[in-house]
Write a protein that binds this DNA or RNA. Structure first.
Lengths: 224, 224
DNA sequence: GCCCGCTTTGACGCGTTCTTGATGCCGGCC
DNA sequence: GGCCGGCATCAAGAACGCGTCAAAGCGGGC
């Protein structure tokens, strides 16, 4: 139920943590370097990351940044360095906690519990449904009446942003900057084309949308 | 903007933290013991708690429990005790982080940032109501007796500015410059047209407005 | 090198929204 | 009482935003 990604370059520590964490009820995924960590985070459903900063292939801060680019999974940093600067840098890069070696296993377990307790309740339902279609945010799948609907990358980006803000008005600028970048903030025409596309694929009556609504002059709204 | 409750029984530390945190942009509320801390947490809008475990009147763990009974505000524990057991107990009692003395101010600030970053996105959404209608500022929705009312962009801009200043007089210039731009600061006619429009949409008796009031020669006022 | 799917761009019709002018009302002031 | 400034209301043309269709770039896979 609770999956931990452990990133450390020393095989013994990796093994020790794997055994101990598993003994305490965690599923453990391991990675010996930064690249493997970033890959593992995308291919597994990770609940919390334990990250050693001293990796051979890349700076630990870059690993944090790489994760924070797309996920808010809790990150607990392990480090042999006690300096205040190291702590500050790691936390500001997006880490949630910083533990200096040597540390007691009890303490790490407690910090793991604290981290997953915070993240636990937020378990945002990665599945949004309407009477007509269902969007699986985690797996990037859209079903219409149970039938999968293919989405192009751009279509998906637009749809995702709308669906992640159910009932809320999403301004045109928000959509354009999020999907195409700040330079396209005024290319509202793009939105019309893609909203039409999404409606054709998802709405029962594309000309009279029930869920992908236009707020003239303001933006668009997803109505669950 | 960000209010910190600092709990410590040593006046010097309290003072030092107050000064330093305030210098870094935090509002600081202090409490010298556990009872005062629990009281302060209820009477102030606290965003994060910094709690020394060594209090004269009650066990720090009980303070944590007392807070966790009704709030999920982040708690950062300060302690002179390095023992693993202390860390485990505090975290399992509901603390979010555990820092051992002596600690660098930089580190505390970084942990404060990390804590409020996690809690930050929960932005309570503002919702303004009158007997006649309700304005949902976050979602840009206006309800009149539960029925959504469509607003044009300009109508919404005017309404938003008024509603964000409930009971306060908003001058014509303020409205004009905010909605149409500084060049239109004297086009008071625009205001009359749009106030009439808003009243027609929102007031029970548009000719005798109860909430969107005119202050002749000065501006307009939203009365909740 | 070619094909195919995706993205970008253009053109058009339509409905809505903004702007502007005209008119009448009210209260204060001379 | 008459004048005047500020306000409310109504109406109409202009400007804008939206949806739609279609065709032209663009890039990756084969």
């Amino acid at each position: 139920m609770n999956t931990v990604l452990v990133v450390d370059d020393e095989p013994q520590i990796l093994r020790a943590l794997q055994i101990n964490l598993h003994a305490h009820g965690y599923q453990v995924v391991t990675a010996p370097n930064g690249a493997a960590a970033l890959l593992a985070a995308q291919t597994h459903a990770i609940d919390v990351v334990v990250l050693d900063l001293g990796l051979p292939d890349m700076d630990g801060l870059d690993v944090i940044a790489g994760l924070r680019g797309w996920t808010e999974v809790p990150i607990i940093v392990l480090s042999a360095r006690h300096g205040s600067l190291d702590v500050v840098e790691a936390l500001d890069a997006g880490a949630d906690d910083y533990v200096t070696k040597p540390f007691g296993l009890d303490e790490l377990l407690a910090r793991l519990r604290a981290a997953s307790r915070r993240a636990g309740p937020q378990t945002a339902e990665p599945l949004v449904s309407t009477a007509e279609f269902t969007v699986d945010l985690a797996n990037k799948i859209v079903l219409r009446k149970g039938v999968p609907v293919r989405m192009t990358p751009t279509e998906w980006s637009v749809l995702e942003l709308l669906v992640r803000n159910p009932g809320r008005l999403v301004s045109q600028q928000q959509l354009l900057t999020a999907v195409w970048g700040p330079a396209y903030a005024k290319e509202t025409h793009y939105l019309r084309v893609y909203m039409a596309q999404l409606r054709r694929k998802l709405e029962r009556d594309p000309a009279n949308p029930a869920h992908l609504l236009t707020e003239a002059g303001m933006g668009y709204r997803f109505q669950p």
